[in-house]
């Protein structure tokens, strides 16, 4: 019976095609450096999962943000583990995405026909940094508060639009409950949505074009 169910689904979904194009597509001879994209993807999923778990207890309000994280760290079973993975995974993700970008640059993998993959990759790098920037405020401790004060102040030095950007980021002239709330919203909805969409296109392009071969001496 399971076989029939499988066949029925396979006829409509095409598991074989999916499997071939996702996991069994032809690859040029590559190195461990070529696995960093998959590593970034894995970290994205890991951050997504641990992030979802954190929202079960975290409260994005100046009254409770710090206390709720304290509670996650000390009151909830394995809260320290979930938050620890999210905390270190965030740092690691920025690092891995950046090294992935360097690899693509040094092997010249951004050239025709993969320019668009590269451009979207830049978007992915920037949104990853955006995740880091918005997530940093959420613990609402001294470090978070002042880092965001400084970060938004820097954004505010942009010519002409500076003051507007500063107010838009902070939700007003100063850091407040609005800042925390909008950073939270950006961190769990807006930026992840953009990130996921970009990852979709990025993956599609990689499957479409395949990986570039490692450059030879005469390349």
């Amino acid at each position: 019976m399971w076989k029939n169910i499988y066949l029925w689904l396979d006829e409509r979904i095409g598991f074989n095609d999916l499997y071939t194009s996702l996991l069994d597509r032809p690859e040029p001879k590559t190195t461990w450096w070529n696995t960093l994209g998959s590593a970034s993807m894995f970290l994205f999923v890991l951050q997504g999962l641990t992030g979802i778990f954190l929202t079960v207890y975290y409260t994005p309000s100046p009254d409770h943000a710090y206390d709720s994280i304290n509670y996650i760290m000390q009151g909830v079973a394995f809260g320290w583990l979930i938050r620890g993975i999210h905390h270190w995974g965030a740092t690691l993700m920025v690092l891995v995405v950046f090294i992935h970008m360097l690899r693509v640059f040094y092997t010249a993998s951004f050239k025709y026909p993969r320019e668009l993959t590269w451009l979207i990759g830049i978007g992915l790098f920037l949104t990853t940094l955006g995740m880091g920037f918005t997530g940093y405020l959420l613990p609402w401790n001294q470090k978070a508060y002042w880092a965001t004060t400084v970060g938004t102040q820097i954004a505010g030095t942009a010519p002409f639009l500076g003051e507007f950007i500063l107010k838009a980021l902070r939700g007003g002239p100063d850091l407040s409950a609005l800042t925390l709330q909008r950073f939270f919203s950006a961190h769990i909805w807006i930026i992840p949505a953009i990130l996921a969409a970009l990852i979709g296109v990025h993956l599609f392009l990689i499957i479409k074009h395949g990986e570039s071969h490692w450059p030879k001496k005469d390349d």
């Binding site: 079960v56 009151g75 079973a77 394995f78 809260g79 979930i82």
Partner: peptide, 15 residues
């Protein structure tokens, strides 16, 4: 390693 602690993490208040 991640999944099992996650379950306890979720149901902790009930315990």
């Amino acid at each position: 390693i991640i999944g099992l602690p996650s379950v306890f993490y979720l149901i902790d208040p009930a315990l």
